[in-house]
Amino acid sequence: MKDSNPAACSACATKGLCGGKGLVTLKDGVWTVNPLAIQMLGICSALAVTSRLESSLVMGAALIFVCVGSNLFVSLLRQYTPHRIRMIAEVAIIATFVILFDQFLKAFYWDMSKQLGPYVGLIITNCIVMGRAEAFALQNPPVLSIVDGLANGLGYAGGLAIIGLARELLGTGKIFGHTVLLEQWYTPNQLMILAPGAFFTLGVVIAVFNALRGPQDEEENK
C-alpha cells in the first residue's frame, strides 16, 4: 500500500493546513488507489450488503462516518499515542465510532439495521479503516486526515452504490423499491440478488475501473 500512496509520504514534509495535498489525497482515495477496486479491501461487506441500493448507501455512509471520525482522532492523538499500543488505541477509536453508528441505526433506522445484520459491527475489522489510520492518519495532520478518510470512504461507498444499483436493477427491475424495468418486457434475473451476482458485478466493476484508469499507473508502481 505504501508505494501506491505517494501522498502519505510526502505530505509530512509540507507545512500549512493541507499543504496543497488535499486534492491529490481526495483523488487518490476516490480514484487512483480506490480501496475497493484497486486495493481490493472491504470486499466481504461489498459482496454481502449490496443486494439493494438502499442498504449499499447506508453501508457506504457508515464507512465514511467511521473512516473520517477515526482518521481525525488517530491524527489528533498521533503525537501522544505510545508507539507500542498505537494499534490498540486505533481499534478502540474505530470501535467507538462503529458502535455509535450501529446504535444510531438500531434506534432510528430499525429495518435497515435488521437488513445489514452483523455487517455494521464488522466495520471494526474492515481493512480500509484500520489501513487508513495506520498508513495515513498516524503521519498526517488532522485536516488532511479527514480528507483522506472522506476520500477512501467515498471511494468505497461509490463502488458499493454502483454494485447495489446494478444488482437491484437487474435482480428485481426496481430502484429504491420503485419499478423501473417494466415486467412486460423485463424478467428479473434472480441470480443478481444471490451471492454469485455479487461476485459477477464486483468483477465487472473492478475490470471497468482498471480499464478506465489506464495501464500507466501499473507501470509507475513497478
Partner: peptide, 29 residues
C-alpha cells in the same frame, strides 16, 4: 506508566461516550 495511563484514559473516555449513547438510545430500541 505513561502507556498505562494513556490506555486507561482513552479506554475510559470511549467507554463513557458509548455508555452515554447506549442510555440515550435505550428507549428507542
Amino acid at each position: 506508566l505513561y502507556t498505562i495511563g494513556y490506555a486507561g484514559i482513552l479506554g475510559t473516555l470511549c467507554a463513557l461516550l458509548l455508555t452515554g449513547v447506549a442510555s440515550f438510545t435505550a428507549p428507542y430500541k
